[in-house]
Amino acid sequence: MSTEVLRKPSRPGPHRGGEGGGEPGGDGNGRGGPEVFFDPGRFGLWLFLATLSMMFVGFTSAYMVRRLAPDWTPLRPPGLLWINTAVLLLSSATLEAARRRLRGWNPAGVSPWLTATGALGALFVAGQLAAWRVLAARGYFLSGSPHNSFFYMLSGIHGLHLLVGLVWFAVVLVKARRLAYTPGEADGLGMFATYWHFLTGLWIYLLLLLFVL
């Protein structure tokens, strides 16, 4: 189902659909088609990310309130976290490289970069698990202090979303290998990239919130 959609010409753009036949499928006769302002899939994804952001706004406000309590003892982040962050940033960069190959009419060059993205993503998850182990070995457990609780919970939720991203990555990779993406435009990759970069940004935000601010 998705392939045929992904092969559609790029997003209809902000013009009122139905006039210029922006929707090739239309309803068969070019009249009275929907007024398409944005590509629905992309728009839906952005809405979803907005919703996800609101959840983290909720966590942020809880964190701010909780940090004011008198028993707040800060947690020192393990150095591994900074390495993990670099890995995640790198994975976003390789993803952009893959998209550049696609845009530059080099579909064969896409999958190596894409593979690197997924591998780095997996490495990040492994690194996060390792960071948890490091902390646990030092005696910092989930319920030990509020700061611990927030760190474990937020990094865990972020990690779960990244695992979902990795499943999506697998789908995208298979398609890229089959050269299912039309060179010159980056629709399918674009949605995946939006999600992936969102998670990178989210992690950096969480890191700043938990350990820098």
Partner: peptide, 29 residues
């Protein structure tokens, strides 16, 4: 719904942690 419900998801997750994993998001000394 999209803007308001996520706050309850966040709260529910924290409540689960308080109930099952001994954290203290909502539970005072």
């Amino acid at each position: 719904g999209l803007l308001a419900f996520p706050a309850l998801v966040a709260a529910c997750l924290m409540l689960i942690f308080d109930r099952h994993f001994g954290t203290s998001f909502f539970l005072p000394t």
